[in-house]
Design a protein around this nucleic acid. Structure first.
Length: 329
DNA sequence: ACACTATGAGTAA
DNA sequence: TACTCCTAGTGTC
């Protein structure tokens, strides 16, 4: 599932390629025909992410999308990479954002490998097996493949949405209500960084819920998912079960600042790189395999990279929680 | 053909 | 805590 960094990258992709253009909006799958008709023919006027929520403005109404675990956007056509993320490059072909193709067992990192091997811009994450379409003329627009809930089409680019948990048209007041119920997001500059940090610390410190749960609560901090939750707590050496109210202000501030840092790296690279300072072969291994990329996520039973203790796997609120009982106290 | 998995989140009980 | 929804790929029989 796409955590906050992916959604910010998708928002930038829309900003670079769709905002300012009139769009044909349809629902090839048929399950969003009414909503699509409300947006069809309008100009996309804004693109914003708050946490895991994508908000595409259409000169009045807003398309609100949450990808959930399975959702993904596929981009095709002439896609310009957002210059704020990478050196300006353009790709003609397809890019999938959101779901990273790492479903099931044994396939971790396939998409990342293909990107690394061709040196393509990281934002344009190609689907495996479609490398050959890069730079070659393709039929435009391509036929929708699979269950496409929404298709957004301009003269030169197309975006297809599959498998979202939320896909709805909101009026401005509803957008404001959504923003209000979400916690701070360091990459959504709706408030100063200092205010965002203070909001997180205040909210977490007055809760008796375990910090592992609070980090996943989108009303406490928006954008963190299961991977970042586990990795942030390991990096801070904090036991996920400790209540927020029991953490010191310094510990909470440290968690927030580390999230600011990891999120920025995630937005820039498109990957959840949670081990700092990797170089050479170890970095290559981390890019190729999820198992080599994290401190604790999906490493249950393996020795901790820091202390050797077996990484534990618990269930917290129905989600898998990975942590090191040796380091995290 | 069927089972299983996943970076999420809401609702019912 | 236990369903429920959404999708597609991979594994197993």
């Amino acid at each position: 599932m796409p955590e906050g960094h992916s959604v910010h990258r998708i928002a930038r992709q829309f900003d670079a390629n769709f905002v300012g253009r009139r769009a044909a909006v349809s629902s090839p799958q048929g399950r969003f025909e009414v909503g699509a008709a409300e947006l069809d023919g309008r100009e996309m006027t804004s693109s914003q992410a708050i946490g895991k929520h994508l908000l595409l403005g259409f000169d009045g109404p807003t398309l609100h999308v949450h990808l959930g675990i399975y959702g993904a956007w596929d981009f095709a056509g002439a896609i310009t990479v957002d210059p704020t993320i990478l050196a300006s490059q353009a790709a003609v072909g397809t890019a999938r954002m959101g779901q990273t193709g790492m479903r099931g067992a044994g396939t971790d990192g396939e998409n990342e490998e293909s990107i690394a091997s061709i040196g393509a811009p990281r934002l344009a994450r190609l689907r495996a097996g479609e490398r050959e379409s890069l730079g070659e003329p393709v039929v435009f627009p391509p036929d929708p493949v699979g269950q496409v809930r929404v298709r957004i089409l301009t003269d030169s680019a197309v975006a297809d949405l599959r498998g979202p948990t939320v896909c709805e048209v909101l009026e401005p007041a509803q957008v404001r209500a959504l923003a209000q119920r979400l916690g701070p997001d360091p990459e959504a500059p709706t408030e100063s960084r200092a205010k965002a940090e203070a909001r997180f610390v205040a909210r977490a410190s007055r809760s008796n819920q375990p910090i592992g749960q609070l980090l996943m609560d989108q009303g406490v901090v928006a954008g963190i998912g299961n991977v970042y939750r586990a990795e942030l707590l390991f990096r801070a050496r904090i036991d996920p079960h400790r209540p927020g109210s029991q953490l010191t202000t310094d510990e909470l501030r440290g968690l927030w600042r580390d999230w600011v840092k990891l999120l920025r790296i995630g937005v820039e690279t498109g990957q959840m790189l949670t081990i700092d300072g990797l170089r050479g072969a170890r970095r290559a291994a981390a890019l190729a395999n999820r198992a080599d990329r994290h401190w604790v996520y999906k490493r249950e039973g393996l020795p901790c990279r820091r202390c050797g203790t077996a990484i534990a796997l618990d269930t917290m609120q129905g989600r898998k929680l990975y942590w090191c009982p040796g380091c995290q106290l």
